[in-house]
């Protein structure tokens, strides 16, 4: 693997400084508004989790569909990059860039209420969650036939997974919903953001680890179908 796609993702991000600045500033402004507005901890954590995860899925799915419609995706695959390498490398590059862009917002969200170790854990949880969101974005893009559909599907899939992850409601302990929540991808991020004021969460992020490991395997397995579907997008 030559990591051509990952390197290209970084080059593209650096070549668009205006967009880079927006992607840093917009989350910072939103987080600042909420943290300075005195929002209750539970609501603030929910908003941050939604913001960070949607940043990952939308940021992955929409450019992929746009590139597919323009014919660039087809050109990349045709040029010799295996579909599975492309999707994994793209998610790797995209999640690293997203995590770096969200780092100031995360730092503000946790400012003054977290130890260095806790902050490092929060960064790792954020990065892993965005890695999942980027991989989900790839799969969502394959199901969509237009940019509008991509935005809709990204929102629906992310919000549904956020719901399962306990972001919008707290399931009764030992209920089946609680078990589902433990295995949900964004539960760890929500839990981390929720517990910052009360000290860092020490709970093992089971759902996060499962999704971090399984989703790349699913992506590799579905890579050819994703490629075929995205090429259909470029054929109109």
């Amino acid at each position: 693997m030559k990591f051509l796609v990952t390197v290209m993702e970084f080059r593209i991000a650096l070549a668009r400084p205006r967009l880079l600045a927006f992607n840093v500033m917009v989350p910072v402004v939103l987080v600042l508004a909420i943290s300075l507005g005195g929002a209750p901890e539970f609501h603030a954590a929910a908003v941050y989790t939604v913001l960070f995860t949607i940043f990952g899925t939308f940021g992955s799915a929409i450019p992929l569909v746009r590139d597919a419609e323009a014919g660039l995706f087809g050109r990349i695959i045709r040029s010799g990059v295996p579909p599975s390498h492309f999707l994994i490398e793209r998610a790797a590059g995209g999640s690293a860039i997203d995590a770096l862009q969200l780092l100031p917002a995360l730092t503000i969200a946790t400012l003054g209420s977290i130890s260095l170790n806790g902050w490092i854990r929060a960064v790792l949880v954020l990065w892993s969650s965005i890695w999942i969101a980027n991989l989900l974005g790839n799969l969502v893009a394959a199901a969509a036939r237009s940019l509008a559909e991509t935005a809709l599907f990204s929102a629906v899939v992310t919000l549904f997974l956020l719901h399962l992850s306990g972001v919008f409601r707290t399931p009764l302990p030992q209920s089946s919903w609680a078990v589902i929540e433990a295995f949900s991808p964004f539960q760890a991020l929500h839990e981390t953001l929720l517990t910052v004021s009360a000290g860092t969460s020490t709970e093992f992020p089971l759902g996060l680890v499962v999704w971090v490991l399984i989703l790349p395997v699913v992506t590799v397995f579905l890579a050819r179908s994703v490629t075929r579907s995205l090429r259909l997008a470029s054929d109109g």
């Binding site: 593209i12 070549a15 323009a70 014919g71 660039l72 050109r75 040029s79 010799g80 990059v81």
Partner: peptide, 27 residues
Amino acid sequence: GYAGEETAHFNSLTGIQNAHFFARAAG
């Protein structure tokens, strides 16, 4: 090697960066 009717490239990168990418991708 294939050149179709589309002209899709990484528009925010230079010509030489694009050419390097596709050359390296092709081996």
